[in-house]
Amino acid sequence: MNVRDFAIGAVAGAVAGAAVVEAVNRADRNVSPDKVLEDVKNAFKKEGPIDGAWIVMKTEPFRQKAVELDVYRGGLSREIDGSYEQYEFAADARTGTVVEINKI
């Protein structure tokens, strides 16, 4: 084995290692609360305009039956056919998936 082959192998191994570390670190991160709010707003906008929306930037524990996870809590308001509606939601902090919606 010559030095050139060794160097190519070492560089390839370092690049692969860095990619694995980045993938593991990314798996531990939460979705941005701004992204979650934008996704929820876009879903509601399909049914009509939104007057206002908010989200709590800090996660909180959520339990429904046997499922436990950290969620972002938020809400939005809109006017449909002259009637004012308000909703609160909880979205999984890791995936952004809405796990609960309640009309107030």
Rank of each mutant, 00 (worst) to 15 (best):
K45M: 13
I80C: 00
E88I: 06
E38C: 04
F62H: 10
N2H: 03
A23S: 11
F62P: 03
A53S: 15
Q86R: 09
A7H: 04
V11M: 05
A66D: 15
K46V: 07
I101L: 10
P33R: 05
T97W: 06
G82Y: 01
P33W: 00
T59W: 00
R29A: 07
V11S: 03
G52L: 01
V56P: 06
A7Y: 06
V21G: 02
A53D: 12
E22H: 11
V31A: 07
E60V: 14
P33S: 10
V99T: 08
G82S: 11
E79N: 14
K41Q: 14
D34G: 15
E79T: 15
I8W: 10
F6H: 03
T97L: 11
R78H: 10
D28T: 10
V20R: 06
L69Y: 00
K103D: 02
D39W: 00
Q86H: 03
V31N: 05
K35P: 00
R94H: 07
I8L: 14
A93Q: 00
E22I: 13
V71M: 09
R29D: 06
N30I: 02
Q64G: 03
V71A: 11
A10S: 13
K35Y: 07
S32N: 15
D34Y: 04
K45A: 15
V67E: 03
K65Q: 12
D81P: 01
V98K: 06
D39G: 07
I8R: 15
F89T: 05
M57T: 14
K58Q: 14
A43P: 08
N25K: 11
A18W: 00
G96M: 04
D70V: 04
E68K: 15
S83G: 04
A27H: 11
A53V: 02
N2C: 11
I8Q: 12
V3S: 14
A90E: 03
D81I: 06
D92L: 06
T95K: 06
F89I: 10
I8C: 10
V36E: 09
F62Y: 15
N25W: 03
S32C: 09
L37Q: 12
D51L: 12
K65I: 05
Y87R: 01
A18I: 08
S83I: 13
D81W: 00
E100S: 15
A23K: 13
D39V: 10
G17N: 06
R73V: 12
K41G: 01
I50E: 10
E60M: 09
S83L: 08
E47Y: 04
D34S: 11
F44S: 12
A12T: 09
A27N: 12
E100L: 08
G48R: 03
I50S: 07
I50M: 07
V71H: 07
F6L: 09
L76T: 11
G96L: 02
P49W: 03
G52R: 08
G48P: 07
V3C: 07
A19H: 07
M57I: 14
D70F: 04
A91H: 04
V15A: 13
A14H: 04
E85Y: 14
A19M: 08
A93L: 05
G13A: 04
D39T: 14
A10H: 05
A93C: 08
